[in-house]
């Protein structure tokens, strides 16, 4: 049963990815991205890590997609722009992506992966690891968020003087 489910989620993820890339209208792109994120969350669940799948739903599908939709609507980008250039650049992009995928997947298949040893990861495990030897990265990530906030606000502040 999980086999079928996994294939189903994989298919959904690929469809979502393609809509993000190919759809001229960014709004539908965002919808595709949402589909992609949710299907990945489903796959996490199948891969024995419910913590991540729930996080994925909350953070990605909940937060980031809303961000995108907000900006898309804010800049009223609904009208599909003459967006795709089938020039040389397009061909190179396609070629690069295809080569990348082929080499990657082939590398994977011939590598003697050892067995599939399912370990059920719970929030406790991640938390425990995070606060023991992963502590430094935890603090560093808080600092990363600080930089993100300061930058975003600083950029917006540039326009505050105008209104005054």
């Amino acid at each position: 049963m999980t086999e079928v489910l996994m294939w189903f989620f994989a298919l959904l993820a690929i469809i979502g990815a393609f809509t993000v890339v190919l759809n001229p209208n960014p709004f539908y792109g965002a919808m595709g991205l949402l589909l992609n994120f949710l299907s990945i969350a489903g796959m996490y669940m199948l891969l024995q890590s419910p913590v991540l799948s729930l996080l994925q739903v909350i953070v990605y599908a909940g937060g980031i997609i809303v961000f995108f939709l907000f900006v898309i609507l804010l800049l009223h980008l609904r009208r599909p722009l003459a967006d795709r250039d089938s020039s040389l650049k397009g061909v190179i992009a396609v070629a690069l992506a295809v080569v990348f995928a082929v080499v990657g997947v082939s590398a994977l298949f011939i590598y003697p992966m050892n067995g599939f040893y399912m370990a059920y990861v719970t929030a406790k495990d991640i938390g425990q690891y995070m606060l023991t030897d992963g502590l430094f990265a935890f603090e560093l990530s808080s600092f990363l968020l600080l930089v993100g906030v300061v930058t975003a606000i600083a950029i917006v502040k540039l326009y505050r003087e105008e209104e005054k």
Binding site: V21, G29, A97
Partner: peptide
């Protein structure tokens, strides 16, 4: 391998699209 395929699609998207929001996505 599924992840790699998705990575390739994303890479294609970044190189191919002109709209900055779509590149971000």
């Amino acid at each position: 391998s599924l992840a790699l395929i998705m990575f390739a699609i994303g890479l294609f998207g970044v190189l191919f699209r002109k709209n900055f929001i779509v590149i971000l996505m």
